[in-house]
Design a protein around this nucleic acid. Structure first.
Lengths: 198, 198
DNA sequence: TTTGTGCATTAACATATGTTAATTACCATT
DNA sequence: AATGGTAATTAACATATGTTAATGCACAAA
């Protein structure tokens, strides 16, 4: 295992959040973490499980989804390279209420929940980083709430494509549709209408 | 001004978040804060303004709302007694993107943004409290996202009534409707359908 | 190449929600 | 009590999205 490589990836991640953490602390995190390469289409976390770790996507793509009362698969969100597979399992709920899977071959850095919580507690720089991460997540959810309140499905799709230009090419339409809160057939119809009107 | 009374209210607020903060720090916060009693129907913050303070609702009720492209008033959320009028103006955006108004006579405790940020920076207990507050806000937004993804308007209304039994009596239907992402006329229809089927 | 499997598209129809306009109910003020 | 203004309800119709089923397409396995 090439520790320095992982440290530099973690550094890149933290810098993408405008966070500065000493390299020795990043090294400490990497020392405690485990790394997994997961092939496409694997389940990496399931409903009802205890949340024992948080994952950073070093490469690849993960998807978080609900199973609703009728058994339908509904996408809650995507975790592309450089983001975390993080959900409320990490704060407040010990049992997962959603699933995670890989949509491509994916490399994960896994950090035990207890290790992260200890780091957050003991290290002010990490605690500040955690705050920034929470604030960003909250802003994102507010942005999404705004979409459901004031936009129709077509507008939400347009904004999705702007925000995730790569994903809209590689991810199955059905997952994008449920992420937008509509049926896959509806997204198909919307795409056609957008083509026809240029 | 009865400082002790405000300190006890602030204590109640922090305990509702399972937060323990020394009383002298609460006293310090109260010393720095200003208090305002605002009559029903007043605008307390507007789009485009700089966010200079955060407000805790000591009594009464406030409402946060967007104005969409067509000029429609769309409710983003409510801040009943014991909660904060907090939006992304406090973290990341300096300019407000939404409005706040009172729906009843309301008493606010106003804390300057700079004062809170200083407190968060310098006092670990406050910093931990801020984390808990962010986590709770994030859980709430995830709950809401879930509603838009897997529920229809009727189900969202039922859940709203369970979560805010008081509000569903006192708040104008039109605000509840836009909060649920539907037109007031649609909520009216839903309520009638619910009555008819018991 | 053949076969099988899942995905995207399409069409027809069903349902939920939006829109408009009229009516009624409910207040606050005078 | 009378008035005026806002909110809620209702109905008729418009539109967006859901549902079902059929078809075609792409890709992987045999």
């Amino acid at each position: 295992m090439d520790k320095n490589y992982f440290v530099s990836q973690l550094k890149e991640f933290s810098e993408s959040y405008q966070i500065n953490v000493d390299e020795d602390i990043l090294g400490e995190i990497v020392n405690k973490a485990t790394f997994r390469v997961i092939s496409k289409g694997e389940i990496i976390a399931s409903i009802g499980e205890k949340t024992t770790a948080a994952a950073l996507v070093l490469s690849g793509l993960a998807r978080c989804y609900y199973i609703d009362n009728d058994g339908n698969d509904i996408t809650r969100g995507f975790a592309p390279e450089g983001t975390m597979c993080m959900d409320e399992g990490f704060f407040g709920y010990s049992e997962r209420i959603c699933m995670w899977e890989t949509l491509e071959e994916t490399t994960l850095m896994l950090c035990k929940t207890e290790d992260i919580k200890k780091l957050i507690k003991e290290n002010v720089a990490i605690k500040d980083a955690w705050i920034l991460l929470l604030e960003r997540a909250l802003r994102y959810k507010i942005y999404r709430e705004n979409g459901f309140l004031v936009e129709n499905a077509t507008e939400r799709y347009i904004h999705f494509k702007k925000m995730y230009p790569n994903l809209s090419e590689t991810v199955p339409q059905k997952h994008i549709a449920t992420y937008l809160g509509i049926a896959p057939e509806s997204l198909s119809r919307i795409r056609r209408a957008m083509k026809e009107t240029d």
